[in-house]
């Protein structure tokens, strides 16, 4: 289960909308082992593509080091799908490389209108498990 604040959900959705129709991506860091997403970090999509995302490699190094220094880990790795549902694609599954992370997908596809779809998954060794999302106030 992913437990996340309304404020962080809103930030992730706002980022997805701002970069639409390109895919948006980023992480929410939290203390190692806490499973608690706290620090929102929007990342550059180096691909600037509506169908693909990849963290900019130098930005990723900087952010990963920063997390290391703060004893944090990527609790959430998020990205958006801008024309399809918020479900991990084959590419998402094959490149998923953080077994401890919640993979959050947001869909900003047109038919949803004002609503955005926000779903969370565990992806370990090529196996996808959707999980419940509990949104807290604050």
């Amino acid at each position: 289960m992913l437990t996340i604040s309304r404020e962080l959900v809103d930030k992730i959705i706002a980022h997805a909308r701002a970069d639409h129709p390109d895919e948006a991506c980023g992480v929410v860091a939290g203390p190692i082992g806490s499973d608690s997403p706290e620090r929102f970090v929007a990342m550059e999509n180096a691909e600037r593509s509506p169908t693909f995302y990849r963290f900019d490699s130098l930005e990723q190094l900087r952010v990963w080091r920063e997390m290391d220094d703060l004893d944090e880990e990527p609790v959430i790795i998020y990205h958006s799908h801008t024309a399809t549902e918020a479900y991990p694609s084959r590419t998402d599954i094959s490149y998923a490389s953080e077994p401890n992370a919640h993979y959050v997908l947001v869909s900003t596809r047109e038919e949803l209108g004002e609503k955005a779809e926000f779903r969370s998954y565990r992806i370990v060794d090529g196996v996808v498990n959707e999980e419940e999302v509990t949104i807290t106030l604050g």
Binding site: C25, T51, S89, D92, E98
Partner: peptide, 27 residues
């Protein structure tokens, strides 16, 4: 990748960091 790839010279005191790329997409 912006240096010499596998041929990049390394020296005492250097640090090499390996990170899996974070990537995916709609397809």
């Amino acid at each position: 990748r912006f240096l010499g790839g596998l041929e990049t010279p390394v020296a005492d005191g250097d640090t090499v960091t390996v990170l899996p790329a974070v990537a995916g997409g709609a397809r």
